[in-house]
Computed example of a mutant assay.
Amino acid sequence: MASGRSHRPATRSRGIPEATVARLPLYLRALTALSERSVPTVSSEELAAAAGVNSAKLRKDFSYLGSYGTRGVGYDVEYLVYQISRELGLTQDWPVVIVGIGNLGAALANYGGFASRGFRVAALIDADHALTGRNVAGLPVRHTDELEDIIRDNQVSIGVIATPAGAAQEVCDRLVAAGVTSILNFAPTVLSVPDGVDVRKVDLSIELQILAFHEQRKAGEDLGEAVAAASAGEEKGGLAPRAKTAAAKAAAARTAAAKAVAAAAGKTKRPGPDGDVPAVMPA
């Protein structure tokens, strides 16, 4: 396979919208599952349902790839797997370094989905001398003093930052200076990068806060239903069963929202060696 430094995905040069690019991995995951079950073709409706999008959007996305399917037959699964993999740059090897080997970094290192999708973890790097040399996911942890040499020797263009927030920008600057042009950032901070460097941010606490927002809204809606039902029950001389059910749902939703907010605020986290948040990656 070619080195990750030598090629860049073709999506931008072909004018594929960023929103479409963000959905391509969803289609690829669904198509890969179909391929593993030896399904030869799939309709736009079936694939859209498996990917969690509507079929019209899927057909529009695929038109950017030059793939329109066959009327009455659908899309060829194997060809689409190849086509999307090519557009995403997954037909070549992408060496990746993970910086920050606390609980989160170690979980990322142990995630088996990277290699199967063309991302080879080339090195694990941490600033803690106590971790240097420790074996994690079959690789020895190396010290940040070696970062630039590691990037150069492995021709790395993608870096993963899983450090505490306070160390993330310095790590980012060193990665970029060494030649890394794409960064996946798990640190809870916004990184500043020069033009030509892409950053994707993953913040688990933000996702929990969004879920808490929705839970809070559900609680408010259920509370309103409970009040309305209670009023109706009072007119009939007692609390109606509907009011009791709605009140119970509202209480449960408020409890769930409170737990989500507490988790988002970090009250339930256990800091790892780097002070990061433990995470469980899918198998």
Rank of each mutant, 00 (worst) to 15 (best):
R29D: 10
R200P: 03
V81F: 08
L175F: 01
A178S: 12
T132I: 03
A232E: 10
P164C: 09
A265F: 15
V141W: 07
A130G: 09
I16V: 08
E45P: 04
Q216T: 14
L108F: 10
L108N: 04
T163N: 02
A265N: 11
V121H: 00
T91Y: 14
A51W: 03
G89N: 02
V156G: 00
V97C: 02
V81P: 01
R120N: 07
S43L: 07
V277L: 11
V97L: 02
V39P: 08
Y82A: 07
E221D: 13
L47Y: 09
G69S: 08
E225Y: 10
Y79H: 13
S44H: 09
T245D: 12
T268S: 06
S85A: 08
L108W: 08
E221I: 11
T189D: 06
G275W: 07
A212T: 05
P164S: 09
A219I: 00
Y79K: 15
L223A: 12
A123N: 02
I125A: 00
S231A: 14
L65W: 11
R120K: 15
K244P: 04
Y111I: 01
Y64F: 07
A167V: 07
A48M: 11
L223R: 11
E207H: 14
R142P: 02
V156Y: 01
L124H: 04
P282W: 05
I206F: 14
E18G: 15
Q169I: 00
D195W: 14
A212V: 04
G112N: 11
A137F: 13
Q169P: 09
I125R: 01
L47A: 08
D153R: 14
V197Y: 07
R59Q: 05
I101T: 09
Y75W: 03
A256P: 11
S157A: 15
N103A: 15
M1N: 14
T144M: 08
D128R: 12
I101S: 07
R23D: 06
L147P: 00
K201N: 11
I98P: 02
V73E: 13
Y68E: 11
G196D: 06
L65E: 10
P17F: 13
A250I: 03
K218Q: 12
